[in-house]
Simulated scan of single mutants.
Amino acid sequence: MSTRTWFITGASSGFGRAMTERLLERGDRVAATARKPERLSDLAGKHGDRLWTAALDVTDTATLRAVVEKAFADHGRIDVIVSNAGYGTYGAAEEFTDEAIEAQIATNLLAPVQLTRAVLPHLRAQGGGRIVQLSSAGGQAVFPGGNLYHATKWGIEGFFESVILEVAPFGIGITLVEPGVARTEFGHSLDVAPALDAYADTPVGQMRQYIEAPAGITANGPGDPDRIADAILASVDVSPAPRRLTLGSDAYQSVHAALTGRIEELEASKDLAFSTDFADSPATEWAS
């Protein structure tokens, strides 16, 4: 396996940190960005100039573009872009403030879109590359109270489903990663909306009790962050790029149930769907 250069957002914790550590240990180069890059100082001391760091709030589009430009200028070529930065929110739709809504969308949806737009000219110019986007099992399946988080993850999946088709002719592969609940800091960083009494005895209120328990939602999750990081890194050696990686038994079960349910609903509406065509309408198919 040849040495690669990687660009990773949100590299100071969770999956981003686990991937950065592994890549450096095996001899790759990493351009690692984080809100607090000083949290990577221990790795810098150990691995020297194979670790390049930059402070980055991914919601600051101008700075994001500048950091991307500098990373490519300093490294010449970057083989893999890992869009990992993000966080979760929890609450009933009417419990959120406008600011919380805008912040979640800015971080989980708009930032990956802008990162992709910033790196694509470089990947095209160098003749290809790989983009790995951290999504979630919540990009396919839902739970009550996850509405904002799901909106961003379903949105990013739709964005990349289309971009995959756009950039394939340039040798650029894209993989969406859909982990389930893993034992990372994610649960403790959830932005939980102030509760409305009206939801106390609803599924939202019941889930809130679980989320706000001292152990947090991720403490007993089935997902092993190290194994998930290993699976993500290994996917880059697969050609063509897998469109999705569903990681974790809980992720598989929830996504399988969601997709099966949607297929059943679609089949149940087939006759109605066809009945709304013009009688002389030719058969057409969406690109896939």
Rank of each mutant, 00 (worst) to 15 (best):
F96Y: 15
T33D: 04
G14H: 10
Q140E: 12
H256T: 13
L165G: 02
P144I: 06
F96V: 14
H188S: 07
A287E: 15
R262E: 13
G138R: 02
G205S: 04
I217W: 05
Q253Y: 00
A125M: 08
Q209M: 09
I211A: 04
F72N: 00
L245S: 06
D271G: 04
V58R: 09
L64M: 15
G173V: 00
G76I: 01
P214M: 05
H150K: 02
A251P: 06
Q126M: 02
L43T: 02
A18G: 01
A93L: 15
V192R: 01
V167R: 03
L190R: 02
F143Y: 13
Q209E: 15
T3Y: 10
Q104W: 00
S136T: 13
E285R: 12
R39V: 08
V132Q: 02
D277W: 00
V163T: 00
E95K: 05
P282V: 04
F186Y: 07
L51G: 02
I263W: 13
P225N: 09
A283I: 11
A182C: 09
L56I: 02
S269C: 05
D74Q: 14
E21C: 09
G221A: 03
A213W: 05
A234V: 13
I228A: 07
D280H: 03
D60W: 08
I174C: 01
A273Q: 09
G205L: 05
E25H: 11
R117T: 12
I78V: 00
W154K: 01
A11L: 06
T59Q: 08
I164T: 14
S288H: 14
E185I: 03
R65M: 00
R124A: 08
T61K: 12
T202C: 08
A100E: 15
R4A: 06
D79K: 11
A93R: 09
S269V: 05
I164N: 02
